[in-house]
Lab assay of single mutants.
Amino acid sequence: KKVIATKVLGTVKWFNVRNGYGFINRNDTKEDVFVHQTAIKKNNPRKYLRSVGDGETVEFDVVEGEKGAEAANVTGPGGVPVQGSKYAADR
């Protein structure tokens, strides 16, 4: 997939743990970017499923997906693991 931007910061608008996807609002352009659970590179080690939490600040790359921009290599700011959704089960 073609990389559009790297190391972008954004805020998770919403993320559905059961369906495994959601949207991140970019801090720079204010665009909403699709995020799939497979794009989460550093999950919270205490969580079973990969997820990001609503309102969480994340860092990610933006790539060209089939339906427009989507997030890739999602981590917390500075490459730390994401916090994850409060609806995702703990280990």
Rank of each mutant, 00 (worst) to 15 (best):
residue 36 H to R: 05
residue 7 K to E: 11
residue 6 T to R: 10
residue 80 V to I: 14
residue 45 P to K: 14
residue 13 K to Q: 07
residue 26 R to V: 07
residue 71 A to D: 00
residue 32 D to K: 02
residue 19 N to Y: 14
residue 85 S to N: 13
residue 70 E to I: 12
residue 63 V to C: 12
residue 30 K to H: 15
residue 69 A to V: 15
residue 54 D to I: 11
residue 22 G to A: 00
residue 5 A to V: 10
residue 76 G to T: 05
residue 71 A to W: 00
residue 86 K to T: 15
residue 76 G to E: 05
residue 28 D to A: 02
residue 46 R to E: 12
residue 9 L to T: 14
residue 75 T to R: 11
residue 49 L to M: 10
residue 89 A to Y: 15
residue 87 Y to F: 13
residue 10 G to R: 00
residue 71 A to R: 00
residue 48 Y to H: 15
residue 13 K to E: 06
residue 80 V to C: 15
residue 91 R to T: 11
residue 24 I to H: 00
residue 31 E to F: 05
residue 8 V to E: 03
residue 84 G to N: 04
residue 46 R to P: 04
residue 54 D to T: 15
residue 74 V to A: 02
residue 51 S to I: 06
residue 39 A to E: 14
residue 51 S to C: 09
residue 59 E to C: 11
residue 74 V to E: 01
residue 43 N to K: 14
residue 47 K to A: 08
residue 85 S to K: 08
residue 17 V to F: 09
residue 78 G to P: 04
residue 35 V to Q: 01
residue 47 K to L: 07
residue 26 R to H: 03
residue 59 E to R: 07
residue 5 A to G: 11
residue 38 T to D: 05
residue 10 G to C: 00
residue 81 P to K: 06
residue 25 N to H: 10
residue 16 N to T: 03
residue 37 Q to E: 14
residue 53 G to V: 08
residue 4 I to C: 07
residue 55 G to L: 08
residue 64 E to C: 12
residue 30 K to Y: 12
residue 62 V to D: 01
residue 16 N to W: 02
residue 68 G to S: 08
residue 67 K to A: 08
residue 52 V to K: 02
residue 13 K to L: 07
residue 39 A to D: 06
residue 28 D to P: 00
residue 90 D to Y: 13
residue 82 V to A: 07
residue 6 T to H: 11
residue 56 E to V: 05
residue 50 R to F: 08
residue 22 G to H: 01
residue 5 A to L: 08
residue 19 N to E: 15
residue 11 T to A: 07
residue 16 N to R: 03
residue 38 T to W: 05
residue 28 D to N: 02
residue 10 G to W: 00
residue 63 V to M: 14
residue 18 R to V: 13
residue 19 N to Q: 15
residue 8 V to M: 05
residue 12 V to Q: 01
residue 61 D to I: 04
residue 12 V to A: 03
residue 3 V to Y: 15
residue 14 W to V: 03
residue 8 V to D: 02
residue 83 Q to R: 10
residue 2 K to L: 05
residue 55 G to E: 09
residue 8 V to P: 01
residue 76 G to M: 06
residue 87 Y to N: 09
residue 70 E to K: 14
residue 16 N to F: 01
residue 90 D to E: 13
